[in-house]
Simulated assay, not measured.
Amino acid sequence: MQSVPDRLDDLPYAHLLVPHSGPLRGDRYDTVRFEGPLEVVSAGGGSFLECAFTGTELSGARLRQTRFNEVWVQGSRWVAVDCAESEWQDAGLVSTVLAGLTAYGSAVRRVVLRQCKLEAVNLRGAVLRDVVFEDCLLRDVDFGEAKLTDVSFPGSTLEEVRLSGAVLKQADFRGARSLGLTDGPHGLRGAILGSAQLFELAPQFAQALGITVKD
């Protein structure tokens, strides 16, 4: 599992960070620290390299086709943010709320989300590789038609999660606390499950195969 610090001071580039002022624009930001409520002015297509977002609040922001490389997001709340077709790489999100986030068609690689809440998040058609959802709540998250490779969910709770049409390869659900899948077992082809989870899902598998179980 990729190591992601819980404290700002533990970031390898913490001493280089400079505070940001003014609205966000579609520019290149390198070693910048963002705090508190953020105003966004046409920030789509921008890039963030070795940046930290601490306690930030974003609402209704448009960040399409934005690149987030080696960024750290902590204690933040992003609501109705449009991150469609964005790129996330070598990033960490800690104790952050993502609600109504649009991220379809995005590329997410080597990213850890720890103790985050994802609600009504659209990841349709996204490509996720080496992604860890650790102790997270995923509610009404849509992975439809997405590609999940080496993705894991240790300690996470899944509620109303959709996997319809998703392609799973080494997608490890064994550590998840619960598997609330709206599509039933149909989207789990290629997944790794624990025996207890398989037993829990047995009635849904039987129904999908048209099997009647009677004692």
Results as ranks from 00 to 15, higher is better:
G60M: 01
L49Y: 15
W78G: 00
A43W: 01
C51S: 05
G45E: 06
D10T: 00
C51P: 05
V41E: 10
L38V: 01
N69A: 14
Q65F: 12
R33E: 12
L49M: 12
P23Y: 11
L8V: 14
V73T: 05
L49W: 15
R67D: 10
E39A: 13
P19T: 07
T56D: 00
R33M: 13
Q89Y: 10
G46F: 06
H20A: 08
P23R: 14
G26K: 01
W88A: 08
S59G: 08
E85V: 09
Y13L: 04
R62K: 11
R25L: 02
V40I: 06
T66R: 07
L58N: 00
L16W: 13
A84N: 15
R33W: 07
V41M: 09
E57C: 06
T56N: 00
E39P: 04
P23K: 12
L8N: 04
S86C: 12
H15N: 14
D27I: 12
N69G: 10
S76M: 01
Q65Y: 12
V18P: 04
E39C: 06
G75A: 03
A84E: 13
D30N: 13
Y29P: 03
E70M: 15
E35Q: 12
E35N: 09
S21N: 09
T54L: 12
A61S: 11
W78P: 00
F68E: 10
E85W: 13
G22Y: 02
G60P: 00
F68Y: 12
A80D: 14
S21K: 11
E85I: 08
S42G: 10
P12S: 12
V81C: 12
G26L: 01
F53T: 01
D82H: 11
Y13P: 09
V40D: 06
S42D: 14
F53L: 07
R62V: 11
L58W: 01
R64Q: 15
T31E: 13
R62N: 11
G46C: 05
C51N: 06
G22P: 01
A52C: 03
T56K: 00
Q89R: 15
V41L: 11
E35G: 08
A80N: 15
V32R: 14
L8W: 08
R7N: 05
L24D: 02
W88P: 07
Y29A: 05
P23D: 11
R7S: 06
L38Y: 02
S47V: 14
P12W: 01
A61N: 03
V32M: 05
R64M: 14
P23S: 09
R33I: 10
D9S: 09
S21F: 12
V73R: 00
L63E: 02
V40S: 13
P37Y: 07
C83D: 08
Q89E: 15
F34Q: 03
S21I: 11
F48W: 13
V81I: 06
S42N: 13
R33F: 05
G55Q: 05
P5V: 05
Y13W: 15
A80C: 13
L16Y: 12
V18C: 10
V41T: 09
N69V: 15
V32F: 02
P12F: 04
F34L: 02
Q74G: 00
R7T: 03
S86Q: 11
S59H: 10
V71F: 08
G55V: 06
S42M: 10
Y13N: 04
P12V: 04
R64I: 10
V40T: 07
L17K: 02
D10S: 03
P19G: 01
E57K: 07
E70P: 09
W78F: 01
Y13A: 07
E35I: 08
